[in-house]
């Protein structure tokens, strides 16, 4: 019996990953980059490539110092727009900085995980719209933690009756992030992919270029209603955002 217990123990033995960050977030190869900030966000840097998720479907590479030095101030500046109370409510505490983030072999700017209060950010993603991408990904955390405030069915009904979104964000070729000259209810082509991406696009513009959005909605009623729905949801979480 003793031998059997010993054998079972040996089989079930877990090797130490004497890494407290891993034990907390279940992401390997991370190190503290910046622990203290005004809004309590903690920045973690990737010091070696990692694979996580089901069948290791999420991969990201270690950061290069030159890229990190260039991008971190941008990331920090944009995240400082959110207060700690709001971040707590949307369950965001850790920002994981890495390069070339892929999910199921599709390159993505960020992967939010409200359960672990973590947002993995690809610091190399879309140089042109990098700042907007940060807020776009944050919206996914907002929506994920407050689904009832951002009802997708209700939001979809704000579009023209003949418009339909794609089945999923990656099964559409509507990927362009440039601002439309003639919006007609959508700020970018990517907005047309699925409702949550449409909302995230609007939110990202509101955070980075609010005056432009205000100007557009003077002429675009559909967008005006969409903006109001998003603002209304946000005000229920925190009055100081937007």
């Amino acid at each position: 019996m003793r031998i059997l217990i010993l054998l079972l123990f040996c089989l079930n033995i877990t090797y130490v990953n004497a890494d407290e960050i891993y034990n907390l977030l279940k992401i390997p190869n991370l190190e503290i980059f910046k622990l203290k900030s005004k809004n309590n966000i903690r920045y973690l840097n990737t010091n070696n490539d990692f694979k996580i998720g089901v069948d290791d479907n999420i991969t990201c590479n270690k950061t290069k110092k030159i890229n990190l030095d260039k991008k971190f101030p941008v990331i920090e500046k944009n995240l400082s727009l959110y207060n700690s109370n709001f971040l707590k409510k949307i369950q965001l505490k850790y920002i994981v900085l890495c390069e070339d983030l892929f999910i199921s072999e599709i390159n993505t700017g960020g992967i939010p995980d409200t359960q672990k209060r973590t947002l993995i950010l690809d610091i190399n993603f879309n140089q042109k719209y990098f700042e907007r991408m940060i807020h776009h990904e944050i919206f996914h955390m907002i929506q994920s933690s407050h689904q009832n405030y951002f009802d997708e069915e209700l939001f979809s009904k704000l579009n023209e009756p003949n418009f339909t979104y794609a089945e999923c964000s990656t099964c559409s070729d509507r990927l362009n992030l440039d601002l439309y000259e003639n919006t007609k209810g959508f700020l970018t082509e990517y907005s047309k992919s699925i409702p949550s991406e449409d909302m995230a696009e609007i939110f990202s513009f509101l955070m980075t270029n609010k005056s432009k959005v205000n100007e557009i909605i003077q002429e675009d009623n559909i967008l005006k209603n969409k903006v109001e729905l998003i603002k209304s949801g946000l005000s229920k979480i925190d009055n100081n955002i937007l």
Binding site: E20, L24, L35, R42
Partner: peptide
């Protein structure tokens, strides 16, 4: 010292 445990 385990700084990451702060607030956790």
């Amino acid at each position: 010292e385990i700084p990451i445990y702060q607030g956790e």
